[in-house]
Design a protein around this nucleic acid. Structure first.
Lengths: 142, 142
DNA sequence: CAAATTTCGTTGCATGTGAAACAAAGCGGT
DNA sequence: ACCGCTTTGTTTCACATGCAACGAAATTTG
């Protein structure tokens, strides 16, 4: 058995390489980490979200959410209000500046992703999408 | 645009979930990290390898190789000799104990991977394999 | 052949990360 | 109302990681 023909290895390498290319974009443009990018993504597309919602929808744990949100707050891209009903709960909002940066960043990230995907054949792209969808189910549920 | 329908996100989540399941196996069985597992995999299937070869074939940089190899050496799974021709170069070998553990571990890791893959349809499996192969080319070369 | 340069592996440092401890707030039973 | 218990978010601590500096060995250059 060779490592480079071992499927789990190939999947990991492919995914890491792909992810790295995208990270370079938001890292270089606005100095955002992957966690910050994910939170900003969600908050730019929702009025407000709590930590629990952010955590569930980003596969980040509460510590990662807490720290990434803190950094985004420091950068003025989001606000962290305390809930009126339950004073333990944080309610996160995207600031106008956060929106502005996200609107500027998403096309670039997407273009980078599409650039790589477009270098594949249409058939391979379709296969990848189908395979990842199936894997998502298999790996998260199992 | 929703995050959970954003392809790069779905790929990352699927890959991480898959990888995590496998990590649990060699982590639990012998306390190996992903880097250690990769080095052991290569060395168990080759007589001897240098740092450069290990680095290239694991997508790890020289620091990661150095540290992972040090830990594997401490655990008695590999040896780190100094090359006769070039005294800067390390030559790594797998010990009998390293072989023994690898032979014991690979079937378990593979079974875990196959378990997840077998929960997918044959068609989805084929699509995934085709897609990942294409992505590997697109993401690493581009 | 001596000095400068390059290569290889390791180490120090500054930062990031995860697990567990923690404080604050809410909940619940008596 | 009070004492315990749970939940929420943060902090602490120990460890991992990446980058740059480093020392040793080899190679190149004058």
């Amino acid at each position: 058995m060779q490592l480079d023909s071992f499927f789990p290895y190939r999947l990991a390498v492919a995914s890491e390489a792909f992810s790295r290319k995208l990270t370079e974009v938001y890292q270089r443009e606005f100095g955002l980490s992957r966690e910050e990018w994910r939170l900003l993504f969600l908050l730019a597309n929702a009025k407000s979200l709590t930590s629990l919602e952010l955590s569930q929808r980003t596969t980040l744990d509460k510590v990662q959410v807490s720290r990434a949100a803190q950094r985004l707050d420091d950068k003025g891209l989001i606000t962290r209000a305390i809930s009126e009903e339950d004073r333990r709960i944080r309610v996160y909002h995207c600031t106008p500046e956060g929106h502005r940066r996200f609107e500027q960043l998403l096309p670039q990230v997407d273009a980078c992703a599409q650039g790589m995907l477009n270098s594949m054949s249409a058939e391979d792209r379709a296969a990848l999408d189908q395979g990842v969808t199936a894997l998502l189910k298999a790996a998260s549920v199992t």
